Simulated assay, not measured.
Amino acid sequence: MDKNTMNYYEENADILVEHYESADVNNVQNLLLKTFDINSKLLEIGCGSGRDVLFMIENNYNVIAIDGSKNMIEEAKKIHSELKERLFHRILPNDLEFDNKFDGIYSISTLMHLSKDDLKKTLSKIYSLLNQNGKFLMSVSLFRDDIDKDGFDDKGRFFLLLSLEEWIKICEEVGFRIVETKRNKDGLDRNGIEWLTMVVEK
Rank of each mutant, 00 (worst) to 15 (best):
M1R: 09
N4D: 08
T5F: 07
I15N: 13
L16R: 03
L16C: 01
Y20L: 05
Y20M: 11
D24R: 11
N27T: 09
L32Q: 04
T35S: 14
F36D: 01
I38P: 02
K41N: 13
L43N: 07
I45A: 00
G48I: 08
S49C: 11
S49K: 10
M56A: 08
M56C: 14
N59T: 08
N59W: 05
N60V: 04
Y61F: 15
N62L: 13
A65Q: 09
I66N: 01
G68F: 03
N71K: 15
N71T: 11
N71E: 15
I73V: 12
E75G: 07
K77V: 02
E82T: 11
L83F: 03
L87R: 01
F88P: 07
L96T: 00
F98M: 08
S109M: 12
T110R: 00
S115I: 06
D118V: 06
D118I: 08
K120W: 07
K121N: 09
S124K: 15
K125F: 01
N131F: 13
G134D: 02
F136D: 01
S141D: 12
D148G: 07
G156L: 08
R157F: 06
F159R: 02
L161D: 11
W167K: 06
C171K: 01
C171T: 05
C171V: 00
E172L: 00
E173L: 10
V174P: 00
F176C: 01
E180A: 04
E180P: 00
K182E: 15
K185D: 14
K185E: 13
G187H: 10
N191S: 14
G192F: 04
G192R: 12
I193C: 04
E194G: 07
W195H: 03
M198A: 01
E201H: 04
